[in-house]
């Protein structure tokens, strides 16, 4: 039976179901319900929850524990995720799994507590020093937050790479009716973990690391793209949106379709790797792409333009950037009409 759950509580409970044995984090709005929930829930399950002295320390606790193969995670928002970037770079350098939740708040610096997607470029491009990627999953509902979290440890361990669930303030704070999967544990053992015996950990000599990084990230990009295409078969204009803006964009598609407009939606679920394959499926009737995102200056739109180029879709790419709010259905429909009538200038 479905029950009403708050987004942050639900994602925390889903992590427990997925076999997470250790959490380390530091309070910051709008993700604090995650450590709060786990500080009660984990002792109940005989697991460990540590309130670290800061976000950096928390990510190194995760590095240490996952080096030993323990399913573990951290979460934060805004400046807290910035502090974790050094640790994420080390985790990637060592081919370690890890799970991170970023419940995004708006802005640089301290920012605000408003819902936003302004960490898109940092989180999909690596964010720390060196050339690496974090696998980024973007749910647009609380049920999907649960489902993606439930898979994330398996994905992180399969690729030996961190996985981030990119949530948004409103998605963490709102409530929806959801169902949880059963408790599970890792199937099989990891053969590279640190256990004191100094067995091989799969480390490569520096001279082989560049080629290995290229091979690893090319493989993930090829086989791990996920997205949802909605009414795109004959669409002339295609919205591209993830997370909460994808919900209002979908409403806009339905309303515009009801008025005879040929519009559709591509909703990336993996932000890295970006679902380029979704664009390969678009037909020659497409006249424009519209990125709908909660950013100030446009971030997702860069990937939309690159995907279009890769798929030889030579059409203008427009951007509707709503900053510290989520574009309403009406605003999206209006923006579309302005695009169609030539009143809007393309970004790319």
């Amino acid at each position: 039976m479905k029950k009403m759950w708050k987004g942050n509580h639900a994602i925390a409970e889903a992590a427990m179901r997925a076999g997470c044995k250790f959490y380390a984090g530091y309070p910051i709005t709008p993700q604090t319900e995650i450590p709060e929930y786990l500080s009660a829930r984990m002792p109940e399950l005989g697991r460990t929850c540590i309130q670290a002295e800061n976000e950096m320390s928390a990510v190194y606790m995760i590095l240490g524990a996952y080096s030993c193969g323990m399913r573990c995670m951290t979460s934060s928002s805004g400046p807290g995720i910035s502090l974790k970037q050094e640790g994420l770079s080390y985790i990637c350098a060592y081919y370690l799994p890890a799970v991170i939740v970023n419940v995004q708040r708006w802005g640089p610096g301290l920012g605000t507590l408003d819902s936003a997607q302004t960490d898109y470029l940092r989180d999909t491009r690596g964010g720390g020093n060196g050339d690496y990627r974090v696998i980024v999953l973007a749910p647009n509902s609380i049920q999907e937050s649960i489902d993606l979290m439930y898979e994330s440890f398996d994905i992180a361990e399969k690729y030996r790479n961190p996985v981030e669930i990119m949530s948004e303030a409103a998605l963490g704070q709102m409530m929806e009716a959801v169902e949880f999967p059963e408790f599970k544990d890792r199937e099989g053992e990891l053969d590279w973990t640190y256990d004191g015996t100094n067995r091989p950990h799969g480390k490569l000599p520096d001279s082989e690391k560049s080629a290995a990084a290229l091979a690893k990230y090319t493989k993930i990009a090829e086989e791990f793209q996920r997205w949802e295409s909605y009414r795109t078969e004959d669409a002339e204009y295609v919205f591209v949106a993830f997370g909460l803006p994808s919900r209002t964009s979908r409403n806009a598609v339905d309303q515009l379709r009801a008025n005879g407009e040929k519009v559709g939606l591509i909703r990336p679920i993996t932000l890295w790797p970006f679902p380029i394959k979704a664009f390969e499926e678009l037909g020659p009737q497409v006249k424009g792409l519209i990125s709908v995102e909660s950013t100030d200056t446009g971030q997702l739109i860069e990937d939309v333009a690159l995907a279009a180029k890769k798929c030889k879709i030579d059409v203008p790419v427009y951007g509707l950037f709503s900053g510290l709010s989520i574009s309403k259905t009406k605003a999206i429909s209006e923006f579309y009409r302005e695009v169609k009538s030539g009143q809007r200038k393309e970004v790319y």
Binding site: A52, S57, G64, A65, G87, Y90, Y194
Partner: peptide, 28 residues
């Protein structure tokens, strides 16, 4: 010649804490 984890500059105590959480039976 034992197991060594090279951690970031200054973060050894946090990393060793994580190791101990995962493997309380080992010396961290």
């Amino acid at each position: 010649l034992g197991d060594t984890i090279q951690c970031a500059h200054g973060r050894a105590a946090s990393t060793a804490t994580g190791v101990k959480v995962a493997r309380p039976d080992l010396l961290s």
